[in-house]
Computed example of a mutant assay.
Amino acid sequence: MTPKAKKLTQADMPEADFAFYGLVWAGTTLTERVDRALTKAHDLPVSWFEVMLWLATSPEPVPASVLGNSTMLSRSQVSRVVDALQGRGLVARTPSARDARSVEVSLTEEGRRVFAEADATRREALAPVFTDLLDAQDLAALGAVWRKLKAVKGKVAAP
């Protein structure tokens, strides 16, 4: 008779391992949930939404290179996403006023409208599994953790 496999619990792992697993699990689970909701409602993958989010929060057009450094996408992925968004009329590329060799990207009016609708969908998808469960103190703690982890990006050599 094969023994029944037991589920690992927090007590079975060192605290740092459990915390890391939790970050990975939460990121994957929440991203998949948002991706499904955005794709179903707006035909907008979460990677496209991420680029639109950065553009929507910027008061002026964003250099394409800055999008590559800001998002969790590679520069080539950002380029493909911007191409797709431009093909749908959601973003515009314009020559940079500061650097003739580069282009800047901004949301079009249609892009702003689609982003607002998609952002409402994202919030609705996250509410029952994230924002409705966490209070202001929880969110502030997560923000503090994220800022600490992000602060060392590029300062610590990859293994």
Rank of each mutant, 00 (worst) to 15 (best):
K4L: 13
A5S: 08
K6D: 09
K7M: 03
L8G: 02
L8K: 01
T9W: 00
D12I: 02
D12Y: 01
M13R: 02
E15Y: 01
D17G: 03
F20R: 06
A26R: 12
T28G: 13
L30D: 11
L30Y: 09
T31C: 12
E32F: 08
E32R: 13
V34A: 15
A37I: 06
L38I: 07
T39M: 11
T39G: 10
V46R: 12
F49A: 09
L53F: 15
L55K: 02
T57Q: 15
T57A: 14
P59W: 10
S65M: 08
T71Y: 09
M72C: 13
L73K: 06
R75T: 10
Q77H: 12
S79K: 09
R80I: 12
R80S: 15
D83W: 02
A84R: 15
Q86R: 13
G87R: 05
G87K: 06
G87Q: 11
R88Q: 14
R88K: 14
L90Y: 07
V91R: 02
V91F: 03
T94W: 01
P95D: 08
A97M: 02
D99V: 00
A100E: 11
E104R: 09
T108Y: 01
R113N: 07
F115D: 11
A116G: 14
A116R: 14
A116S: 15
D119Q: 15
A120T: 15
A127S: 10
P128I: 03
P128D: 04
D132H: 06
L133S: 00
A136Y: 01
L139F: 02
L139H: 01
A140K: 00
A141N: 02
A141P: 00
L142F: 10
L142S: 02
G143T: 05
A144H: 01
G154Y: 03
A158F: 08
P159M: 00
P159K: 00
